[in-house]
């Protein structure tokens, strides 16, 4: 118990004194997971909208595939991306393995099924007549999309939270494709694993606290936006 308390005190000191390594890793985590989530939204929201609204023969099969993707262990995604981007793999020539870009790619594949599924569910829960109503009220195509997104904001922001939460907290995939290189591809989760294995409890706790703080801050902002009633 004493070691944990000492660890916490030291962690708070590291955070308070602006420890360079800690903030550099935290910044990298935010950049990598934020980029992956943004890309997942870019692809997942339109795909989820189509799956939520349109009716076509393969729709159920695709939804089942998306649901399977949601449950895929990140380390398996990491393995697949590693096999694709390793030097001898089909995309080895791109030389992305053990780079931040490789982590963004693998996190994109982890977050996208979550974003698609949450978006499709939120769009499906809207009244079916809503697009017709907006059309007869005089909304153009873009205005309709914006108003529908506003109506589905609970689900859409839940999609951002789920996607970001999944990628910022995963460790196996980032370790596999990023290599946990100091000053380059080390992110908060891989750093926690490293410091724990080195028995540097203070740093591990400090990284853990920062990770929790980042997740809490982002989810709080999104929740405030989500729960705000439109005028």
């Amino acid at each position: 118990m004493g070691a944990i308390w000492e660890g916490l005190v030291e962690a708070v000191r590291l955070i308070g004194t602006g420890d360079g390594e800690l903030y550099s890793i935290a910044g990298r985590s935010l950049l990598v997971s934020g980029s992956a989530t943004a890309l997942a939204m870019l692809v997942g929201v339109p795909a989820g909208y189509v799956l939520g609204r349109a009716r076509f023969p393969a729709r159920t099969l695709i939804l089942a595939g998306v649901a399977t993707g949601m449950g895929m262990p990140p380390v398996v995604a990491g393995l697949v991306i590693w096999l694709l981007f390793v030097r001898s793999g089909p995309f080895g020539g791109l030389e992305l393995i053990y780079t931040k870009q490789a982590i963004i790619i693998v996190q994109f594949f982890i977050a996208t099924p979550l974003v698609i599924a949450f978006t499709a569910a939120s769009i499906q829960s809207l009244p079916t007549r809503l697009p017709d109503l907006l059309a007869v009220l005089g909304a153009g195509r873009l205005q309709t999309l914006w108003l529908l997104a506003r109506e589905a904001r609970l689900g859409l922001l839940a999609a951002v939270m789920a996607g970001f939460g999944a990628v910022v907290s995963e460790v196996g995939a980032s370790m596999a494709v990023g290599g946990n290189l100091v000053g380059d591809t080390r992110v908060l989760t891989t750093a926690i694993v490293t410091e724990t294995s080195r028995a540097d409890t203070e740093r591990a706790i400090a990284y853990g606290l920062v990770l929790l703080a980042i997740a809490f801050a982002i989810v709080t902002v999104l929740t405030v936006v989500q729960q705000r009633s439109p005028r």
Binding site: R129, L133, V136, L137, G138, L147, R150, E151, P230, R231
Partner: peptide, 29 residues
């Protein structure tokens, strides 16, 4: 868009007050 008004059989509204809902069509026009 300004030629037609349509009241569906089922009353469908967006979230927000009734005033905001009545205002939307007029604003879009």
């Amino acid at each position: 868009r300004e030629y037609v008004a349509y009241a569906f059989q089922e009353a469908v509204f967006l979230s927000g007050s009734l005033h905001a809902n009545l205002d939307l069509g007029l604003r879009l026009r």
